[in-house]
């Protein structure tokens, strides 16, 4: 107990209190200064009946789905390939982690610069390779913009998934594969019967973390598109931010945040159950 107390107190003060405060103001119509009208659940009612908020939840779900899918396809694929000995592989391993080290600010600005329709390098490459004839207006057309922010997010997020999954792979005892290979099992069979089950606990952790992080993600999308064009990338964190810091409806903003919190907890609940049952 004495070991846990310092951390618990620290977090109690600096996490539990602000969390509680967020919940508290979600029941008010407030600018946090001189207007404090208690309005019960009206903010929540406004949220679930507002097309804009529901749309931004929808966009967030698509963004999250694509980022989780992207990071896991890339991360798992690379982890499987990297799971072997050899100098070349350890070099790959180190280099492929690099994007994880980039600050989000840098990731967002760098990708905006790469995707710049006039001065950017990507259009130049695509046009020199004759893949496109006209410069693509990345971040400008709804679908391309979503692809752009998803691409940047996957680029910087896949290494962590890759490293965690690689660690998971390495914790699967080699004897299992040997036994399977004696039984005449092929690569695919042993992947399904040994690798996937062995990886499951790690996979669940990476899935849940990536899902929750993406669902709340703000910086990269905000700096790249600020939610545009025409709200095509208006993820829910941006709605929360705008409601609070541009429209000064702090209560409404808090209600949005609380709804996101609840959605994430529901998701985590499934995960918790899954892990319990798995054991």
């Amino acid at each position: 107990m004495a070991f846990v107390a310092p951390g618990a107190i620290f977090m109690g003060l600096l996490i539990a209190y602000p969390l509680g405060y967020g919940l508290y103001i979600s029941f008010f119509n407030t600018n946090l200064i001189n207007r404090w009208d208690f309005i019960g659940l009206a903010n929540y009612e406004a949220a679930v009946t507002s097309g804009a908020f529901l749309r931004s939840i929808g966009i967030t779900a698509i963004y999250t789905g694509l980022v989780v899918l992207g990071t896991h396809v890339v991360g798992l694929g690379l982890a499987l390939l990297l799971n072997r000995q050899g100098r070349a592989f350890s070099v790959f391993r180190v280099l492929l982690i690099l994007p994880w080290l980039f600050p989000e600010v840098v990731v967002a600005l760098l990708w905006s610069w790469i995707l710049n329709p006039v001065y950017g390098i990507l259009n130049h490459i695509l046009m020199s390779l004759n893949i496109v004839s006209q410069p693509l207006v990345w971040l400008e057309e709804s679908r391309l913009a979503l692809m752009g922010v998803v691409g940047a997010s996957v680029w910087t997020s896949f290494p962590l998934v890759m490293v965690l999954l690689l660690a998971g792979l390495q914790s699967i005892p080699a004897e299992l594969y040997e036994a399977a290979s004696i039984d005449g099992a092929g690569r695919i069979t042993s992947f399904i019967h040994i690798t996937l089950p062995g990886l499951a606990p790690v996979l669940v952790v990476t899935l849940i973390l990536q899902t929750v992080w993406s669902f709340k993600h703000f910086t990269i999308v905000w700096l790249m598109t600020a939610g545009g064009p025409v709200n095509a990338t208006n993820v829910v964190s941006i709605s929360i931010y705008r409601e609070a810091f541009q429209y000064f409806n702090f209560g409404q903003s808090a209600a949005y945040a609380t709804i996101v919190f609840i959605l994430c907890i529901i998701f985590a609940g499934f995960y918790w159950r899954f892990v319990r049952d798995g054991k």
């Binding site: 710049n116 329709p117 006039v118 410069p135 207006v137 990345w138 971040l139 400008e140 598109t225 545009g228 064009p229 025409v230």
Partner: peptide, 21 residues
């Protein structure tokens, strides 16, 4: 108008003017 007007904010427009775009 140069491609990407929806992403053209003030600073981008200044880059265009200054670079004779």
């Amino acid at each position: 108008v140069p491609p990407g007007p929806l992403q053209t904010s003030y600073s981008e427009s200044m880059n265009y003017m200054a670079n004779d775009t």
